[in-house]
Design a protein around this nucleic acid. Structure first.
Lengths: 399, 399
DNA sequence: AGCCGTTGTTGGGGACTGCAACAAAACAGC
DNA sequence: GCTGTTTTGTTGCAGTCCCCAACAACGGCT
């Protein structure tokens, strides 16, 4: 891979667009300071990006300081957008996310927790996607489609290799959807944990933190990891299945074949069972447990403490493995955060080789339910951000 | 960080030197094919590198094919070298490693497994280092010093934050050594597992494999991880402490404060205890157990099977976490490899969500004892490889 | 009103790579 | 033994991109 001079231009264009995309509008002067490039260079770069319609210039506004006012440069939010599909266990959603992270309200559909087949789900997704596409003003460019799903995703083939809690195998979901929608667009699919941590890293609780682990308990335990600012993928994209780390070899059997996987010990079903609720009570049962905790109910407190115990073991392991600066808890575990954080921090301080020496912040998610969708959208936009002028900007929507 | 045109030159020089360093001598034509750069560009790049003495040109030699013979370009092995110090539990060593991975025989000193203090060890290291430096022909350039050590290494401060099996805390080992040797050189220090996996990746069992985990059992369980071709470091360099992943929460107490850490279950002491040897028998006791296995001794076989059981659990966890293409076993576990591989592969196929779908090769180390030293040397050479002309080539040795 | 400081713009220069033509060196065939 | 072919290294030229310096624009401050 030799590097030619044109790679310089590509890299610099990419950097400018990425700054505007991630950090919001900025003046040319700020871009200059941020990149270290020359004023004149930044000028031409912004000009090139403006020419293809990716960015635009606002009116010069006085900042109160001296000197010539600098116009704010910002991305054109909906000029290029992606269609996002989010497949969770308890709900499915679709929406439009534009450059700069601007997003229209998602269309979300709660659904019963039965192991439904593929077809009914795809039906739902198609309907939601059509609603989302209807939001897109005619003439706007659709750059791609992004799917986030709770399951193993083979990133090379864009197929769901298995959703242990959904019951699918080898489903080329993006292809199915594109066919249903009669669209021909680049597609990406990501595991919900991988997408979630990327979102929290770019626009959530972990902004500026380059080593993060995200744990998000819905029915299983979704997880995602960022090391050195880059998503951890592994050989085929299966990395980060932290929920299937065995922490109790004689524990209950897991659908994955092992016994005592972390997700069995800290998952929703375990908590509900410990609290005396029906395991499959879903969100209602969980709310009941949380209310009981607030009321000081002893059984509920004991149940949460038990979950906290295992969560602390799991996080301590994770800290020893990844030495992150931050652990973000999403979904159910975000709700449990205030009730388990003491246990977790105590264990990190006392019983974790790495946690004792390298401070770790354990915080709740900031993006909540939307994290995985936002992250998937960012993955889909990546080709555009890497090569702003070389990437095909997509066709104007004509639906 | 904006990219200027000079970065192009730096990158291309770096790439050419790296090719020669890692893959050995090559013709200009091969470099051209490998980099995708133009013939003329490669010519000037090689010329620049030759001018500062980093590479040299051999005689043109006919390859038997048609066409003008191309002279082999190769790095000048000992022109720039690093002094490597390797601190293991059972031995310490020092040696010289030159560009291209060429190394003079290491000076290794076995030592008793007592928790010796810092001073005696540094005395030994100084003596070994002086022997190693004496190997270096006068006039050769010493580029830096590299230390590999079995313990937590803070990569920002170059200190040993703790060697659980050595009993040190907060020791700035490279500084101590440089002072003893009256040298003033750039220093790097690395955890033995991190160095080991880097070595196996560049010059050992994992060449060309970009997602690798290395497990090396001496007294504890050293580990190192490469994800996407880059070493896993984490926030301060403590990542990869896989030996302190808790796999048996009610298990024996570990020096780290937790119970049931993996290294307690698969480490040398556990094996010796299970086999009826004294726990601190060291290499002799281990050899006895290995011999007993070959003889078919039932107790020994049972002991190894028990270790294999836990190793399989540990590796299955690791595979779920990292989705590697390869797991390399070093030191004691390399010796155990033939006796445990079946258990490990069985578990990966049956009880690992990721292992079942993404093939993992579990192999024995190829570099053995020298892995960590070789890897540390590569870390020390990194600045030179990244910026061949900008890096200070160091002063000619005058010892 | 005039000066100052900051910012954007423009023209020239330098560095680097790619391209094309030419030279060098060995093999194959007659 | 000679010539044509093939592969490789080298040289001069052109294109691209960034940096630099000078100049212009513009609002605040005195």
């Amino acid at each position: 891979m030799g590097m030619a001079t044109d790679a310089v231009r590509r890299t610099n264009l990419s950097q400018v667009l990425r700054i505007l995309h991630v950090e919001g509008p900025a003046t040319r002067a700020q871009i200059t300071a941020h990149t270290g490039l020359n004023r004149s260079t930044v000028g031409t770069l912004v000009g090139d990006l403006a020419e293809v319609g990716l960015v635009e210039e606002g009116e010069p506004r006085s900042t109160g300081g001296r000197g010539r006012p600098s116009p704010l440069v910002s991305v054109v939010p909906m000029r290029t957008a992606v269609l996002v599909i989010d497949v969770k266990v308890d709900s499915v959603a679709a929406g439009i996310v534009g450059l700069g992270g601007h997003r229209l309200p998602f269309h979300r559909l709660e659904r019963p927790r039965v192991r439904t087949g593929i077809e009914p789900t795809v039906d739902d997704l198609e309907a939601l996607a059509r609603k989302a596409l209807a939001d897109l003003p005619a003439g706007q460019h659709l750059f791609g489609i992004a799917v986030s799903i709770a399951g193993l995703v083979d990133r090379h083939t864009n197929t769901v290799s298995e959703g242990p809690n959904i019951g699918w195998t080898q489903v080329p979901l993006p292809d199915l959807l594109l066919e249903r929608l009669s669209l021909d667009l680049p597609a990406v699919m990501a595991n919900d944990g991988d997408a979630g941590v990327w979102a929290e890293h770019l626009r959530g609780a972990a902004i500026g933190v380059d080593d993060v682990v995200y744990l998000s308990g819905e029915v299983g335990l979704g997880a995602g990891v960022i090391v050195g600012g880059m998503p951890l993928g592994g050989a085929v994209g299966y990395a980060g299945e932290l929920g299937h780390m065995v922490v109790e070899p004689d524990g209950p059997r897991c659908g994955c074949g092992a016994q005592g996987c972390l997700e069995l010990m800290v998952g929703e079903q375990a908590l509900l069972r410990r609290a005396g609720q029906t395991e499959d009570g879903g969100r209602d049962a969980l709310d009941a447990v949380l209310a009981a905790i607030v009321d000081g109910d002893e059984d509920a407190l004991a149940a949460v403490a038990r979950t906290g115990h295992w969560l602390a073991i799991g996080i301590a392991n994770i800290v020893n493995v990844f030495n992150p600066r931050m652990v973000v808890l999403g979904d159910m575990h975000a709700l449990l955060h205030p009730h388990v954080i003491d246990q977790v921090e105590l264990r990190l301080a006392a019983k974790s080789l790495v946690g004792r020496r390298s401070p770790v912040r354990v915080v709740a998610s900031r993006l909540g339910d939307d994290a995985s969708a936002v992250g998937a959208a960012e993955f889909a936009l990546e080709p555009l951000l890497s090569d702003p002028l070389g990437a095909d900007l997509g066709t104007p929507a004509t639906a």
